[in-house]
Write a protein that binds this DNA or RNA. Structure first.
Lengths: 329, 329
DNA sequence: GTTTCGGCTGTAAACGTTTCCGGGAGTCTC
DNA sequence: GAGACTCCCGGAAACGTTTACAGCCGAAAC
């Protein structure tokens, strides 16, 4: 910029003003423009950040960038973030508490203007780190009610209930359940929802029909195999779509027909559910909507940090596909 | 930092030195440490960047963060980038030339230290922008031989040949081909490879058996349906795994058995191929390896910009699974 | 007792911008 | 024709670090 100013024969202050479109006489404007073009001037983002105290970067921390549910969130977030002229910095945490709190603490370095994080477990150190963070944080997922943090959540218990009701309405009574780890927030919620929901329909809980793995395809397949070796359900509910695809695989290998012998329902309603054959029914937890809302909340808070903490809720919705169609028994 | 220095009763220079572990008397060291702890001092990443002329950020630009092949690359890149203490900024370009060149030009702002880009089309404006970029760029994919740019590629023609030979060896002669757009680098290479390879095996080319869509699931499925409405192949080769999953779906819906009636082979060997039922054979183009190499090249160049341009090649490898097992007719 | 050396320290410049402030020139109004 | 007002402009400070340089002091060497 010094160079540009010198070349145009003006002060750097004037050059800066012209290049930011803040006034200047026609004469100087054209001289500065010409000089900038001649030397191929490009403003330095870092110096600008230092001065403006913003980086125009937003961080996103998710467990696993391979899980399609996070891909959908990421796409949604990316689009609103890009719209606002900012960019996304993506972190994969592997679901590790230490990695997540480290990331949160790093916010203090001000390398981004804010963060959207979707922790799979929420610990006290999370809460502390978020409270201490000078940069705004928005959480996708459950949070203690008293935590003063912007938060968008869904009601996965209600989601599970939708699925169970649907299966029961289709005449299924021996409903299996393949869940993720119980010490995670979603795992615990789904477990609770499942038990609650069976009780509500007057169906006794059969522990033989419940299996736990993690939220991945391979674990879902293995867990389903274990379940099938013990009992034969007439339906299986899975805690997410990756697990459901694994379960489908296990069912087909076992020679069971879906949905005739066993109905199958997943959760998250990702494209994976549509890509399976038969297509898998799934409880939509509005991942794109949640991502979108989270990004909006974050931008709003960056704009006005004094805003009271907000909490958004998106309602689950069941999408029925071939894998659980009623009347296919 | 001013505050810390004042509190410790030393100059900011001394404070800086202590906090960076560069000497200082035991007395000052402990005073500065104590002061820093007291006020909860955290260094400002931006000011540091302005001074050090590095941001410790690496950009990654891919067409679609939803495509599992890019997810694999991203994971591989993320891990080496994180290992070096840097972070990844992810951009989704949607395969748009304008978006990609804009991104490349933005490198001049120095908001990242370098970029890995995997363009699906390579135009002159790409080459210009890369040549003009003051920050290093590594390309994953084909590039004109004379372009002086670090580059890691694979030989997808050879990959196609592996698949065709495998199918022919299994007794298939009416081999269908579902490709992505021919104006993309991978699309063109695969088309060339397919024709070349059939010729090599003395099989005449039947245009009825060739379809073009894009590299997505839905397009793959639709293209396969079109193909099946015209002819009945005894094998189908797909330009990537997303297409292959779509093709599988179309085949099953049409009542065809895989592999008995139609053998199926995809490309990229992503987890998607393993998650399908039956599992889909796929030509591995080493996406993780390519990502890893690209990241290494980039870090090496950042360290020493004077390095001559390097070019790495990873060999394709066929992974045979149930969808094309020999002897299943 | 003088010189030399090494270890610490503080001053100040530098990184590349933006922006506040004051001054100068020109125009309008009465 | 004088005052008020507007518009531009340049100087300089500021953002928060790192680091080159020079100065100081004490200890070691002769």
């Amino acid at each position: 910029m010094h160079t540009v100013a010198a070349l145009a024969g003006v002060s750097i202050a004037s050059a800066s003003r012209v290049l930011n479109g803040l006034g200047g006489s026609p004469e100087t404007v054209s001289r500065v423009r010409a000089a900038a073009a001649e030397v191929g001037y490009v403003p330095n983002a870092i110096a600008r950040s230092l001065q403006s105290q913003r980086t125009d970067l937003i961080a996103l921390a998710v467990e696993d960038i391979g899980n399609p549910v996070y891909v959908e969130m990421m796409r949604a977030i990316e689009s609103v973030v890009a719209e606002s002229g900012r960019q996304l910095v993506v972190h994969a945490t592997g679901g590790q508490v230490a990695a997540e709190t480290a990331l949160l603490r790093r916010l203090a370095h001000r390398y981004v203007d804010g963060m959207v994080i979707s922790p799979i477990r929420v610990t006290d150190s999370h809460l502390e780190a978020m409270a201490a963070s000078p940069a705004p944080v928005v959480v996708i997922g459950q949070l203690p009610d008293e935590a003063p943090i912007d938060n968008v959540r869904t009601d996965s218990r209600a989601g599970v209930a939708l699925a169970v009701s649907h299966l029961v309405a289709g005449g299924r009574r021996k409903i299996g359940f393949v869940n993720g780890p119980l010490d995670t927030v979603p795992g615990a919620a789904r477990d609770g929802g499942f038990r609650e929901s069976l009780a509500h329909h007057g169906i006794p809980i059969d522990e033989q029909l419940i299996e736990v793995g993690n939220f991945q395809y391979a674990a879902g397949r293995a867990a389903t195999e274990r379940l099938l070796s013990r009992a034969t359900p007439d339906a299986i509910l899975c805690a997410n779509d990756l697990i459901a695809v694994g379960a489908l695989h296990a069912l087909l290998v076992a020679g069971l027909r879906v949905p005739q012998d066993v109905a199958l329902v997943g959760m998250d309603d990702t494209e994976l559910a549509r890509m399976a054959y038969p297509q898998i029914s799934s409880v939509s937890l509005g991942s794109a909507t949640r991502g979108n809302l989270a990004a909006q909340l974050l931008l709003a808070r960056i704009k006005d940090p004094a805003l009271p903490p907000r909490r958004e809720q998106v309602l689950p919705k069941l999408v029925v596909r071939a894998s659980s169609e009623v009347g296919q028994r």
